[in-house]
Design a protein around this nucleic acid. Structure first.
Length: 193
DNA sequence: GTATCGATTAGC
DNA sequence: CTAATCGATACA
């Protein structure tokens, strides 16, 4: 569970969909062309938030994962809202629970995360992770191609809960990539497997 | 300096 | 399908 404590109140949700970005060796990663002011946090210690601004209007949240392999991070693509739903609704333009945090830009908006939160230490700040029994809910973790990228599409590093209504990517079942050229490969297969 | 693109979203 | 909207990037 990702927890966000803010002056306006607490919002939190179960992580139901992520993507892995493997640093400089991953052509789809922001880190693949080296360190810049924008992506510098990814080159720092693990356990910090990398928050970037894109498309001129959206923020997305990553968790820096493995400092030893260099600039690796996990993009939080979707949450199941669990706390602060009314606050999320106030920040978003939808009231339906399943649309509050479905998509990386929506997650940042619902949790009010911006570049100001870039670099936040997850062990010391108001943004942190809480253990929660992820299984036993009837969901399975599946994997498929990452969304919205053109490079390194062969790596199936998107992980999500199969059938979960809060998952993004066009289908709760799995991730049919929205507009990807070429690779028409099937999205979701059981993981591990 | 200008041109192009993007780890996206919402609306038609 | 595409407009929105601007920082990062590529290139003249």
């Amino acid at each position: 569970m990702l927890v966000r404590e803010h002056a306006d109140g607490v919002t939190a949700g179960r992580i139901v969909e992520v993507e892995a970005y493997r640093g400089a060796r991953d052509a789809a990663s922001h880190a693949c062309r080296g360190r810049t002011p924008r992506n510098a946090v990814m080159f720092g210690p693990a356990g910090h938030a990398y928050v970037y601004f894109t498309y001129g209007m959206h923020h997305c949240v990553n968790l820096v994962a493995r400092e030893r392999t260099g600039a690796s991070a996990v993009l939080i693509r979707a949450l199941e809202p669990l706390a602060g739903l009314d606050l999320m609704r106030a920040r978003r333009r939808f009231t339906e629970t399943t649309r509050l945090t479905r998509g990386p830009g929506c997650v940042a908006q619902a949790l009010a995360l911006t570049r100001a939160d870039d670099g936040a230490d997850l062990t010391r700040s108001a943004l942190w992770l809480s253990d929660l029994p992820a299984d036993r809910l009837g969901y399975r973790v599946a994997r498929g191609p990452r969304i919205g990228i053109r490079l390194a599409t062969r790596f199936e590093w998107r992980f999500f809960l199969t059938g979960h209504p809060c998952v993004s990517g066009g289908s709760a079942r799995g991730g049919a990539p929205r507009r990807r050229e070429g690779a028409r490969r099937e999205g979701a297969r059981a993981f591990p497997g």
